[in-house]
Computed example of a mutant assay.
Amino acid sequence: MIPGRLIRDNDMTPKANKEVFKAQGLARDEDAKLKANKPLPLFDQAHEEDYRHVFIELRQSALTTSPYVTLMILSTLLATFGLMANSTSVVIGAMILAPLMAPIVSLAMGLARSESSLTLSSSKTLLIGPVLALLSAMVASWAVGIHHVTHEIAGRLNPTLLDLRVALVPPLAVTGIGLGWVDWQVIYGSFLLFINNLFEIAAAAAITFWVMGYTSFARAKKGFGVSAVIVGLITIPLAFSFWQMGQQSRLINHIQGVELMMESVPVRLERVSVKWGSEPLVQLNVVSGQFLSDAGYDDLAEQLNALTGVSAQYRFSPELKR
């Protein structure tokens, strides 16, 4: 080390202006020799004592313990009741209580350092936890007997590329609710969001371990490759959902507020919503001074198809103008 001015002029520096220099994190022995001729890293690098402490903690976190099982069940039940009651605060409480983050970080270290024992142990714990969560949420949905998609549930059914949330238990609880309802749309959307969030966290943690010096890129590239393949596969349905969202928005913008003359009666189209499928289903209110005939609504559907350029089914809700 080349001492700076504050160290060289130690005796001439007023005591109140002295700075503290901590050297515990400096590289030692052979590690110091290897790093001596390299440029300083942007972030503090881990050393031997850090390895030892972190690995002990992560190996313990990768185990399936009774506190882990208990917290997994309790947090899922709390999330399930919060979702059904449409209570954001209860759902947030379940997220705080959930223990899934610890085995995910252990999995990230296992992938980053190609540690097969740590990877397998954390993967086993990650498999047991979600299975318990799904069973708990499914039983709770049967016990409560509510079959209504609340706003909190609906917010976890259509993940897209814009969804960067890291919540784990709430979408998993929604999947369990979907199993209880035997509703494929609820199961698919929420479980996709859970898998997306899980691997986002694992990938971010693995990259962080690499940046902090817990592994080299040569050692981590295999784990990074596996993560990249999984994230790439998840991206496909997310990209499709994102495209669907764009199409729905475009369709709504083309129809919302449109005014037309049908059967010599001025009508205005309001409260437009779209459910995307093999053929989009468009629901909207038709506000007019008098109700149209069945033929009039058929003509309206044809005009809207021509206007939007999309072949869709329309469900009209007549509404008299006040």
Rank of each mutant, 00 (worst) to 15 (best):
D163V: 01
S106N: 05
A108G: 01
I128S: 07
V105Y: 01
G178N: 07
L168M: 15
S216I: 02
V105W: 01
L34K: 14
R219D: 09
T175V: 06
D44C: 01
A16M: 10
Q60N: 12
G25F: 10
E263N: 08
R113G: 03
M1I: 08
A79W: 05
A173I: 04
D294I: 11
G155Y: 06
V149N: 06
P3Q: 10
I2T: 15
P170A: 06
E302W: 03
Q290L: 05
D299C: 02
T175E: 03
I153H: 07
E152T: 09
K33A: 14
I7R: 11
S114N: 14
A36Y: 10
T208P: 00
V54S: 05
D11C: 03
D50I: 02
I146C: 03
V166L: 15
S114W: 08
F316M: 10
S106I: 02
A79S: 13
A79M: 03
R219T: 15
L284M: 15
N158F: 14
M262E: 15
L161H: 02
F191Y: 13
S227K: 02
T76W: 04
V274Y: 07
A16V: 11
Q60R: 11
K35H: 10
T125K: 06
S61E: 12
G178K: 01
L164M: 11
I96C: 00
D50V: 00
V287R: 14
L135G: 11
P67H: 08
L300K: 09
G296Q: 08
A94R: 08
L192G: 05
V90F: 04
Q248H: 01
V169D: 06
V182I: 12
I56A: 11
S227D: 05
A102L: 06
V139K: 05
G4E: 13
M84A: 01
A16S: 12
A27E: 14
R59E: 13
T308L: 13
R271I: 00
F224P: 07
R315H: 11
L34R: 13
G93T: 08
S66F: 09
R113F: 00
M72G: 04
E48V: 03
N158L: 13
V91L: 05
G178H: 00
Q45P: 02
H254N: 13
L71P: 04
F81P: 00
A206L: 09
R5T: 11
L168N: 09
R315E: 15
S89P: 04
F242M: 07
V144T: 12
G145H: 08
A295Q: 15
F209A: 06
G25T: 08
L26Y: 08
Y214A: 00
F81W: 07
E319V: 13
L161E: 11
L118I: 00
S122N: 01
R5K: 14
Q247C: 05
D183Q: 11
R113K: 13
A62Q: 06
R8H: 09
L127W: 03
A112D: 06
L193A: 13
L307F: 02
G155T: 03
Q303A: 14
S293R: 06
M101F: 10
R165C: 04
V310A: 02
Q313L: 14
K221D: 13
A85T: 13
M72Y: 00
Q303K: 15
E30W: 06
A312C: 09
E49D: 13
D163W: 04
I2R: 15
L97K: 01
A218P: 01
